[in-house]
């Protein structure tokens, strides 16, 4: 049975169901227990399992350090870092510890932690509360980075992330929390490492993630009227990403636009672009185009923030440029 839930509620439900099925799962973070999280995502859990959810001091390094250590002992921590920007404070625990523990212990143990954090611009909170951080981590082998885009994905991918034996950075987008969609009631998983073709088309492939997906769909509708058929792919897992799905699509369309929130230089779009041009050069009918945020910090004033973020019109223009190439 499925019903309509918000993205926020879908994540909350995944936490409940994962905790239900596995007693080694526990939660820690700032204001997660008594208050139920700064964005309300862990609400209700402390009533059901007061001994499995913990409010910490403001101590991101300790939150992730404890998680890594507990994971080595067979527990499955699901720490919350209030804003993804704060992952900078505990970067070492992710990049030099979680990512490498399995390698270090020759596979006898690892860090099956799922770090939840909220990312993204759009709520006028300036340069320390607005980053999209996938690219901070995708250059680190051993880390899994996922960014769900719908309530269905959010629940299914969080369940899969918690059961996965790797350290997973699970990035929720703050502008998506109130979006609604069909979500099955029962426990289910959406597999990691698999992108999804959301719309089939034959002329241009658009790869998007989180808030650039609705833009891609809006662009596709406009382009359809002009006779351009767009295929839209939701990347879902950013690292390690699904080469096969991406390649199959671009081999068919011969044109690729990648729509990414976050600075252009060194972003995940750059990696996808490099991979496609290396592996699929002879299939491409036009250069690959990226639509991204500008290479600047996010400013506070709404006009400044809006100016630097990717937009539907830019996706439309990029697709048109490829068609005319």
């Amino acid at each position: 049975m499925s019903r309509v839930l918000t993205y926020a509620k879908a994540i909350n439900e995944a936490l409940f169901q994962s905790m239900e099925r596995d007693a080694s799962v526990f939660i820690l973070g700032e204001d997660v227990a008594k208050m139920g999280g700064d964005f309300g995502i862990t609400q209700g859990i402390s009533y059901k399992w007061p001994d499995r959810i913990f409010d910490t001091a403001l101590s991101e390094s300790a939150i992730l350090g404890l998680s890594n250590g507990a994971a080595l002992c067979g527990l499955r921590p699901v720490p919350e870092i209030m804003f993804a920007d704060f992952l900078g404070v505990c970067y070492d625990q992710l990049v030099n510890n979680a990512a490498k523990l399995r390698f270090m212990f020759q596979g006898k143990a690892g860090a099956p932690i799922t770090v939840r954090a909220v990312q993204g611009a759009g709520i006028r909170c300036a340069y320390h509360h607005s980053a999209c951080v996938e690219s901070w981590f995708m250059n680190t082998p051993g880390l899994v980075v996922v960014s769900p885009s719908s309530p269905y994905e959010a629940k299914g991918m969080l369940n899969a992330a918690i059961r996965n034996d790797n350290p997973v950075i699970f990035l929720e987008h703050k502008l998506l929390y109130n979006t609604k969609g069909e979500v099955p009631e029962e426990y289910y998983e959406v597999p990691l490492y698999e992108a999804e073709v959301e719309r089939e088309g034959s002329d241009v492939t658009i790869i998007g993630l989180q808030i650039t997906l609705p833009m891609a769909h809006a662009a596709a509708k406009q382009l359809e009227k002009k006779g351009v058929s767009c295929e839209i792919i939701d990347l879902r897992t950013v690292a390690p990403y699904d080469k096969e799905t991406l390649k199959a699509s671009v081999a068919k369309t011969g044109r690729l636009v990648i729509a990414q929130e976050g600075p252009r230089c060194g972003g995940w779009a750059a990696e996808l672009s490099a991979m496609i041009s290396e592996d699929l050069f002879e299939y491409l009918r036009a250069p690959i185009k990226r639509v991204t945020s500008l290479d600047v910090p996010i400013a506070f004033a709404p006009a400044l923030e809006d100016f630097v973020l990717p937009k539907t019109e830019q996706i439309v223009a990029a697709c048109e440029a490829l068609m005319e190439y």
Binding site: F86, R124, A126, H128, A301
Partner: peptide, 30 residues
């Protein structure tokens, strides 16, 4: 969030700074 703000509206409530008076500003990361 106005252009006339001491930081031109780029920082807002959490990031107001003014070197002239040695207000060194706040970093949103506690």
């Amino acid at each position: 969030a106005k252009a006339t703000g001491i930081n031109g509206g780029r920082g807002g409530s959490m990031h107001v700074n003014d070197l002239e008076y040695r207000n060194m500003g706040f970093n949103g990361i506690q």
